[in-house]
């Protein structure tokens, strides 16, 4: 397979939920998208348009009603060790120390204790948390906790990362620092990522491509290629003069001004 082969692919995916009042809610309809190896793609769209639903299907937690999801060309039938996901909530387990939390995924996969500890410590050092390995989650700030969650996600060495608004609960400054960490890590490790966000600048700063979704039932209405250099350096990218133009384009697509009027 060439390097441009799709790591993650959605083929004409539709997802409905049973709803006591409306009978059925169509969350997403006929969505096709693909993310190539090493590519970072952001998904943006109005609240409730089915972004999280897509991610859950990618993680194998929820099957689509029709269409199929493929990872490395193989149909996703359930959770896979090649896909890891990360949410807005850090979901660190309060009874585990930070390093034990980072080891969770490897532990589930049956990685030997010594190997997983080595990898966890390595990642915590990369995520700049080496002094907090033996602390419990409640002893860390929100930004540090989310960094530990990132380390936990990377620890299983997934080929595809699915992230659902991972930084949306953080303050603006911490957020920028974590975006920088993520941008660098994704570039260094060459990971493939599908990234959900409501933060338009974040989407521009981090991604190769942005997919814009319509209100529910969610479809992809536009694909925007972010032609700004330095994807490994979101901080620098933010300052690029073209960012404003992308943000305006996204605002128009999402009809944000109309909604405010």
């Amino acid at each position: 397979m060439s390097t441009m082969a799709a790591r993650l692919e959605f083929r004409d995916v539709t997802k409905r939920f049973a709803d006591p009042r409306a009978g059925a809610v169509v969350a997403v309809e006929g969505v096709s998208l693909n993310v190539s190896d090493g590519e970072v793609v952001s998904l943006i769209g109005p609240s409730g348009c089915g972004k999280s639903t897509l991610l859950n299907m990618g993680a194998g937690l929820d099957p689509p009603n029709s269409g199929e999801v493929l990872v490395d060309g193989e149909r996703v039938g359930g959770p896979s060790r090649h896909v890891a996901f990360m949410l807005q909530k850090d979901l660190l387990l309060p009874w585990r120390t930070i390093v034990e939390n980072v080891e969770l995924g490897q532990e589930i996969l049956g990685v030997p204790r010594r190997d997983r500890r080595r990898r966890a410590l390595d990642l915590l050092a990369k995520c700049r948390l080496p002094d907090f390995i033996d602390h419990y989650p409640h002893q860390l700030s929100g930004g540090m906790r989310q960094r530990a969650a990132l380390a936990r996600t990377l620890a299983v060495d997934p080929s595809v990362l699915l992230m659902d608004e991972p930084f949306s609960a953080l303050d603006a400054q911490t957020k920028m620092v974590l975006q920088q960490d993520l941008g660098r890590t994704l570039a260094d490790t060459g990971k493939t990522a599908l990234f959900i966000t409501h933060d338009l600048v974040e989407a521009v700063a981090l991604s190769d491509r942005i997919l814009v979704m319509s209100p529910r039932p969610g479809r992809i209405i536009r694909e925007i290629v972010v032609a700004i250099p330095d994807r490994d350096n979101p901080m620098k990218r933010r300052q690029h003069p073209n960012v404003g133009a992308y943000v305006v384009e996204l605002m128009n697509l999402l009809q944000i001004e109309q909604a405010a009027a």
Binding site: L61, P79, R81, A84, L87, K89, L91, L104, I108
Partner: peptide
């Protein structure tokens, strides 16, 4: 228990017993 914690474990391929 937050169901998202269980989903996280399942996404890591945890079995019911795990």
């Amino acid at each position: 228990l937050d169901p998202d914690i269980v989903r996280l474990a399942r996404a890591f391929t945890a079995s019911r017993v795990q």
